[in-house]
Design a protein around this nucleic acid. Sequence first.
DNA 1: GAATTGACCAGCT
DNA 2: AAGCTGGCCAATT
Length: 111
Amino acid sequence: MLTLFQKKVYKILQKIPKGKVTTYKSLAAGIGNPKAYRAVGNAIRKNPKLKTIPCHRVVKEDGSIGGYILGKKKKISFLKKEGIKIFKNKVGEEYILRSVCRTRLHKPRQE
DNA sequence: GAATTGACCAGCT
DNA sequence: AAGCTGGCCAATT
């Protein structure tokens, strides 16, 4: 059974255009609860529609990859396939440019 | 209803 | 860089 919260998460998730990524935090903000990033992570982790929901387009706020059911490696290769550049640290940590994470999900009212 | 969990975040050591 | 802490939130036990 999907909760309302999860539905929101998945809905926004599907809205992410190919070649773009977002962060758990932005996603939470898109829902209207900027502090619920953890819950968002959980919702995605459950992932009832692995085929339909591009959960690989969600990364961490600091640009590092984050987790994935099928493994981080898989996630990275998916992202590459979508045309997203993956950079590497001196220590070999993979990360994404923050400029690509700027996908705006839910227009916050102009302040 | 309390306690635990987790694909997070920010800050500090 | 790596590790720990506390904070926050929804779902599950």
